[in-house]
Design a protein around this nucleic acid. Structure first.
Length: 470
DNA sequence: GTAGCCTTGAGA
DNA sequence: TCTCAAGGCTAC
């Protein structure tokens, strides 16, 4: 009886939880999970009718009509586009119209519920209110959405998918790699099906991907323009950031000065090492002025910096490529762009690997839509590394690391509710970053041993400090 | 055509 | 047995 009572409570709570949500399409009350995400009853019905009957709509305006509860009937074209954009799944509409039962979204819904509860508990524990501003997610872009301008990397299973208006009853099983006869239910699939396939769409709530540089935070979820701001700690971290343009102009000035002094001519390897040295100078300056870090004893500060300078350097490079970089080129702190093939072709195997792995990491970051706030958290996670030995105030470092973890988790859950596992994936990226940093340090050490790294500078000192401590 | 309520049925 | 996300029905 107790178990039944608890189950009832759980059921009622989950309904209350759903009731508190608003449909990401029109803002009406959510009635449950429908076709991949929490929506209202009317959008569920609308989506079903559209897909089942191969409806084709046109928009009399400019294909960016506002869709809310009162106006959702006005433009079915824009309503359907919004359904797709927020993540409703064409594949979840059954081509065989079989009733009842379950589909493979079940575990996803379950996982989403659990994470939602976790998120709410986390927000409550931080005194934040989980609020939802549904129509802020629409439209994420003014670009008209159509079937032809989507560039998808097709997978083998996509090759038999088809256009919604021609072959929606292709009979292709949603259960990938299963022949039709093995599955009791068949699903509508179109090229969009691939776009919203489990591979691409962790989306169970609104999607603001596609707006470069603008996180979901500014579109929907718990952090709205008016709602609770970023986690307090993150705001503190952002305050510690150095002004990028100022740093750039100072570094350019310093390099020009050194060039004038005859220290380095042109833009060869020496120039690069001097630039790295300058980057390190500002990394140290950032750390020394940063919250928490400045509270540590200088000896502890040095130990932490000696351990992580290269990771911070790599993160700085990667985040710059993320922000300004283009395919096939490397953007330097000075704003100059270096052609990667030209850089790599005369290079040795170590530098080639380094460049390749760097590009891979940038790509991973890009795919994950890593934003500036997450990079800032990363910097503190790197700085407060609990693996560093002989730190006097170890408990302080551990405590800060834990706080940064929490802030990052809180931020990703609230700013990117459609990427519920973003935090985990960020941590995986972090380990890739550490591996890349090890490689970079190895490269710099080899160059230092060859005498290519200019002496008496910070880069030199940090390279030596690491060696001496080992 | 819309949307609220009903029925169904696989899976927990 | 219960749950809940599918499809169905029907008043509007």
């Amino acid at each position: 009886r107790i178990e039944k009572y608890l189950n009832n409570v759980k059921y009622v709570m989950s309904n209350i939880d759903a009731d508190l949500d608003m449909c990401p399409v029109c803002g009406d009350t959510v009635s449950g999970y429908h076709y991949g995400l929490l929506t209202c009853e009317s959008c569920k019905g609308f989506f079903k009718r559209t897909v089942q009957n191969n409806k084709s709509y046109t928009c009399s305006e400019s294909q960016d009509c506002r869709i809310d509860k009162t106006q959702r009937k006005r433009c079915p074209f824009c309503r359907f586009q919004k359904c797709l954009r927020v993540g409703m799944r064409l594949e979840a509409v059954r081509a065989d119209r079989m009733r009842g039962g379950r589909n493979r979204f079940g575990p996803m819904y379950k996982r989403h519920r659990a994470l939602k509860q976790q998120k709410n508990a986390l927000l409550q524990s931080h005194g934040l209110k989980a609020e939802y501003t549904p129509d802020l997610i629409s439209p994420p872009t003014r670009t008209p959405f159509n079937f032809t301008n989507i560039n998808i990397n097709t997978t083998p299973s996509d090759t038999i998918t088809s256009d919604l208006h021609t072959q929606t009853h292709s009979g292709y099983s949603f259960y990938q790699n299963e022949p039709r006869h093995e599955s009791p239910q068949y699903y509508h699939v179109s090229p969009l099906g691939a776009l919203y396939s489990p591979v691409h769409a962790m989306a169970v709530i609104g999607d603001c991907s596609g707006i470069p540089g603008i996180p979901q935070a500014q579109c929907s979820g718990s952090f709205s323009a008016q709602g609770p701001a970023l986690p307090h700690l993150l705001v503190e971290f952002l305050r510690c950031e150095l002004d990028e343009l100022q740093v750039r102009s100072k570094i350019i000035g310093r390099l020009e000065q050194m060039q004038g002094e005859g220290g380095s001519g042109g833009y060869g390897a020496t120039h690069m090492y001097l630039m790295v040295d300058q980057m390190l100078f500002y990394i140290v300056e950032w750390a020394r002025g940063s919250v928490f870090f400045k509270e540590l004893k200088v000896s502890d500060q040095m130990k932490l910096l000696h351990h992580c300078w290269c990771e911070l350097l790599v993160l700085d490079m990667v985040s710059r490529q993320l922000q300004h970089g283009r395919q096939g080129s490397l953007v330097l702190v000075t704003g100059q762009e270096v052609d990667l093939p030209a850089l790599v072709s005369p290079a040795g195997p170590l530098l080639r690997t380094l460049v390749q792995k760097g590009q891979d990491l940038v790509e991973s970051f890009r795919k994950l839509q890593v934003d500036r706030n997450e990079v800032v958290c990363f910097k503190f996670l790197i700085l407060f590394n609990t693996d560093v030995k002989h730190v006097e105030n170890q408990s302080f470092v551990e405590n800060v690391k834990e706080q940064v973890h929490r802030a990052l988790l809180e931020y990703t859950l609230c700013a990117y509710p459609q990427f519920l596992d973003k935090f985990d994936k960020l941590l995986l990226c972090w380990s890739d970053l550490c591996a890349l940093s090890t490689l970079a340090e190895e490269y710099l050490c080899s160059k230092d041993i060859c005498g290519e790294v200019p002496c008496n500078n910070l880069l030199n000192e940090l390279l030596h400090a690491k060696h001496h401590s080992m």
